[in-house]
Amino acid sequence: MQTTSAKSPEPSSPALDRQSLRPDCGNCFALCCTAFGFSRSADFALDKPAGSPCQNLAPDFSCSIHDSLRPRGFRGCAVFDCFGAGQNVSQGFFAGKSWLDNLDTKDEMFSAFKAARQLHEMLWYLAEAQTRTFDPDASSRAVQLRNTIGQAVGGELPELLSMDVEDLHSQVRSTLMDVSEEVRASYFAAGDDHLDSALTPGADLMGKNLRSRRLCGADLRGAYLIAADLRDSDLSGVDLLGADFRDARLEGADLSKALYLTQPQLNAARGSCATLLPPDLEMPSHWHNG
């Protein structure tokens, strides 16, 4: 993809506003509860085939056990976030007509949701990459990719379904990694030198005691942080793209300047009102409940 050092135009699609990349379940036909399947596990209390409604789905597309998902064995549902793809597909591509109203649209709607969900997540990351980089070429690439994806998620259904999502994912990943290298480089001096060998992409840090550490600038992309103790630690400039935060302890941790953090990661973790978060992410409700 060609780049230019000239100032890039801002993305034009309204779907690129990060606020629109938040789920609005009231304007969605419960696509996450129908399109995707899951197997009985610690995150799901039962098996559900893809393309079938969850047994907890109410006639109005709400969840009949929404307020008790975790204690009833559906932590996976409480963690999930569609990045706004659900309402976009329901109200945009299908003009507010549900798959129940026209069963002939069911397969297309579910396919559109699966593609849109991936694209919306890419938009979330690219929006951050654009604001964090000082490199005009990286910013230009982020803008170009956001516009390309924005045209797909704000256009016509055939174009969305024909998108080469894997190719886009590869381009997005390359841009995110370039920005990550730039951002992390400005934090390296603040990190704990004796931990550098353990803090690598995809590292197995399950249950690791990383409490009260300055981890600034570490690359924890895809790392397994399940049940890791990160209480009171500084994660400024830490690349958290795809890191697994299930049951990670984040009480008092500073994630306000962490890189590529998402709401699903927070939803999977444990934290408190003392945890510092980026301004466009919210404290999960179960943090309030201890």
Rank of each mutant, 00 (worst) to 15 (best):
L100I: 09
Q91P: 08
F94C: 03
W99H: 00
G84L: 04
R72N: 11
R75P: 05
G86L: 01
G84E: 06
S68C: 13
G76N: 02
K97C: 12
C77M: 09
F83A: 09
V79P: 06
S68L: 11
F93P: 00
S90L: 01
G86D: 04
F74W: 10
N102I: 07
N88A: 15
A85S: 12
L69C: 07
D101T: 10
A78E: 04
S90N: 06
S98Q: 00
F74V: 03
S90Q: 01
H66D: 09
W99R: 02
L69I: 01
F83Y: 14
S68K: 14
S90D: 03
P71I: 05
F74C: 03
R70E: 12
C82S: 12
V89I: 13
G84Q: 06
F94D: 00
G86Q: 04
Q91V: 08
A78F: 02
R75N: 12
R70Q: 10
N102E: 13
G73E: 08
G76F: 07
L100D: 05
W99E: 01
A85D: 08
F80N: 08
A95H: 14
R75Q: 15
N102W: 12
G76M: 02
D67C: 10
F80S: 08
V79Y: 13
D81A: 15
A85Q: 07
G76W: 05
G76T: 01
A78G: 06
C77K: 07
G84H: 06
C77Q: 11
F74E: 10
N88D: 15
F80H: 13
C77D: 09
R70V: 10
G86T: 02
G86Y: 02
V79E: 14
D81L: 13
W99C: 00
G92Y: 07
F93Y: 06
R70W: 02
S68A: 15
F83R: 07
V89W: 08
